[in-house]
Simulated assay, not measured.
Amino acid sequence: MNFLSDWPAFLPGLLAGLGVSARVALLSLLIGIPGGLLLAVGASSRKKAVRMLIIGVVEIGRGTPALVVLQIFYFGLPASGLTLSSMAASVVALAATTAAYTSEILRGGLQAVPPGEVEAAGALGMSRRDTLRFIVIPQGLRIAIPSLIGFAILIFQATSLAYTVALPELLSQAYSIGSSTFNYLSVLVLAGLMYAAITIPASWLTSRAEKRLARHL
């Protein structure tokens, strides 16, 4: 069979893998972004000990490769008596990486909120908690949206790391098909196109979001 004629036979397995990759990415973002927001708020704490602790956690999270974090959760935790499935380990590891990186994105968004609005809230008698909840966080999230979308693309691509813990995501399925057909080039090209079919439109969405945000700020 020629290069393209194999693709219809490869599609079912690869689509199943793509579904797993999408679930891992979505769960990682749903857990990691709120975690990043908590870290971002904590990094601005008035208590120096809390602030230094949060910054230390973020720097360690940003400095440790996602693959190493994944290996720790999957292979390292069983030594302490806790065993995670490949799906759980992948989600937890990527969520931890997401929290560390998005904390800086979100902290930048929170700091970009005009100081005058924070001062006005204080003048109106709003507590610091209410100011964060109703003024700073909503506007900071809006400012951070383009960068968060861009990071979500990277996390989707990073789901390919789950191949190392035997999770049947897209890359793992591609290797499995390749090992049984010995047609690695064809199946890997198709897998790459499937990644691109998700990431390229998402990149366009990021660009549009940045332009729309620039008009309103």
Rank of each mutant, 00 (worst) to 15 (best):
T206G: 03
P201D: 02
I198E: 04
E104C: 05
S180F: 03
G178R: 07
I55Q: 09
L11G: 00
V68W: 06
H216E: 15
S86N: 02
Q157H: 09
S80P: 01
F182A: 12
L84A: 02
S44M: 15
T83I: 10
A22D: 01
S45T: 11
L148A: 07
V189L: 07
V118L: 15
I145K: 10
L190P: 01
A99D: 09
R142D: 08
P115V: 12
I137F: 06
S85G: 14
L167H: 01
A162F: 10
Q71R: 06
S186R: 00
V187N: 01
L141K: 02
S86I: 02
G116Y: 09
R23E: 12
I137D: 10
A209G: 08
Y195W: 12
L18G: 12
V69F: 00
I149A: 02
G63W: 05
A162H: 06
L193P: 12
F10M: 02
G17R: 00
A214G: 08
P12G: 09
P146A: 14
A88E: 14
L18N: 04
V20A: 08
L106V: 11
L94I: 12
P114W: 10
E210D: 13
L26E: 02
P114Y: 10
A112Y: 09
R107M: 05
S160Y: 13
F182S: 13
S207E: 14
S90I: 01
A22G: 08
R129C: 10
S85P: 07
P78V: 11
W7G: 00
E169P: 11
A88I: 13
M1W: 01
V187D: 02
A112P: 04
I31L: 14
V91Q: 06
Q157E: 13
I143T: 10
D130H: 14
Y175T: 12
T64H: 07
Q71L: 15
R46S: 14
Q173R: 14
A123Q: 13
R51C: 11
T131Q: 14
Q173F: 07
A40Q: 03
A152V: 02
S186Y: 00
I31E: 01
T199C: 15
P168E: 14
I60P: 04
H216T: 14
L132A: 14
T181E: 05
L124W: 04
G150D: 09
L106P: 03
F182P: 13
A100W: 02
Y195L: 12
L77I: 03
L154W: 02
F151M: 10
I200S: 06
V165H: 04
P201V: 05
L171F: 13
L190D: 04
S179Y: 11
S179Q: 15
A96G: 06
E210Q: 14
P115K: 15
T199R: 04
P8I: 00
A88N: 11
V50Q: 14
P12S: 02
L110P: 00
T97H: 15
S180D: 08
A121Y: 10
S179W: 10
F73Q: 00
L188D: 03
R129T: 15
L205W: 13
T97W: 09
A25S: 08
G42C: 07
L38G: 10
P78I: 05
G125M: 09
M126P: 00
T98H: 08
S80A: 15
P8K: 00
S86L: 04
M87L: 11
S179E: 13
F3K: 00
E117V: 12
L148D: 06
